[in-house]
Design a protein around this nucleic acid. Structure first.
Lengths: 212, 212
DNA sequence: ACCTGAACACCGTTCAAGT
DNA sequence: ACCTGAACACCGTTCAAGT
């Protein structure tokens, strides 16, 4: 008895936004094309009119998440260190809003025009602060590796079937004194990350020069 | 007409070694329980006698790869920098032999006794060189993040269905001058990685002290 | 142009049964 | 103890068909 909307009730944007929402809620493995169709209120195969396959859907989600990072505005007195720092922190902030997408981001290097343009722009901004393009690319690759690698460990979302249980972590720690000592003060992932990022950025200056 | 071997022709070790070999050959998605049974020459369900499910098989593969890294022998004049450097390089070497396992390693933080013992040992070795346990854990986490993050980008193995094609990379680069300039000299992943790792290690000294 | 629905060729896993 | 085989409840995707 529902009136049918004569206009298409599906479009690429709605599909991608919904996919991201489903992944945020149910994880990557929780997004099946069949359940996804139900979520959208259409036949599961309707999605294939807009995207060739599930891989393309994942790539589109990766792009959507990257879009959420926006563009960096760089002041005239910015250093390359400040630009790199800001880029990394922003990536971290956005990915912590979408923890289930981290394995996707780390694993699907989308080479769409939009993604390439974003990289090109960022490298250009780094070059403007005095780096060579090659050095900019190098440090960006390293900082990205650190950022997503750290998030991967931090969120610890298994990509496949569930992980074997290992009992109470607290109990297990008893047999590993150095590990236990290291974790005695508790651990603050943000602080740890900041220390690592700072080391990576500052260390580049100390050991490799600033690109000229 | 074949004579049946009266002894079990399956054991956990053979299962795990074969699984790693299959993943090396066909990728993670190429390992299905049904094909895996055929590979082993048994009914697919035979594996379930030794491991509860596919996730446990993946965890066992992760452990097997970690085992391949072996233990670090640390001389009396070793610095924490040399220990961390060696641990990272060894991880990189082993994972480059098993590129398809990288997403698995990055995504399945196995907490088995063996893995915990290995971490405990390494932290202990770092403490012996003068670091506090907390600092050792922190820098280890950061170096691991960098190492697997870098490998993840480097090997670029899609975890899900195949990636959307983006035409010839060379052609596409035309519209992205900074990117093109950065890649003009070609790129040497080993050198890039070494620079990043060195920055991370040296930077830690410069900005956070050496733990006392 | 946009969506449906049946069909195909797969999956992982449970469970009772065989030896 | 160790392995089999049928069965269950799913998958992603193709393709012809509907409107």
């Amino acid at each position: 008895m529902r009136t049918r909307d004569p206009r298409p009730n599906l479009d690429r944007d709605r599909i991608v936004r919904t996919a991201l929402a489903v992944i945020d809620r149910d994880g990557v493995a929780g997004l099946t094309m069949r359940k996804f169709g139900a979520e959208l209120g259409v036949d599961p195969m309707a999605v294939y009119y807009y995207l060739p396959d599930k891989g393309a859907l994942f790539d589109a989600v990766v792009e959507a998440v990257h879009d959420e990072m926006g563009e960096l505005e760089v002041g005239p007195d910015a250093t390359w260190q400040s630009v790199v720092w800001e880029a990394s922190q922003r990536m971290r902030t956005v990915l912590r809003r979408h923890p289930h997408t981290v394995p996707l981001i780390g694993t699907r290097p989308v080479l769409s025009p939009k993604m390439l343009a974003a990289s090109d722009r960022l490298i250009g901004q780094l070059v403007d602060t005095g780096l060579t393009a090659a050095t900019a690319l190098n440090i960006l690759a390293c900082v990205r590796a650190f950022t997503i690698g750290y998030l991967l460990i931090e969120v610890g979302v298994p990509a496949g079937p569930p992980i074997e249980k290992a009992g109470e972590v607290g109990d297990v720690m008893a047999g590993y004194p150095a590990l236990a000592a290291g974790m005695a003060q508790g651990y603050d992932p943000d602080r740890q990350f900041d220390l690592g990022l700072r080391a990576l950025v500052d260390g580049w200056v100390a050991s490799a020069g600033s690109g000229h």
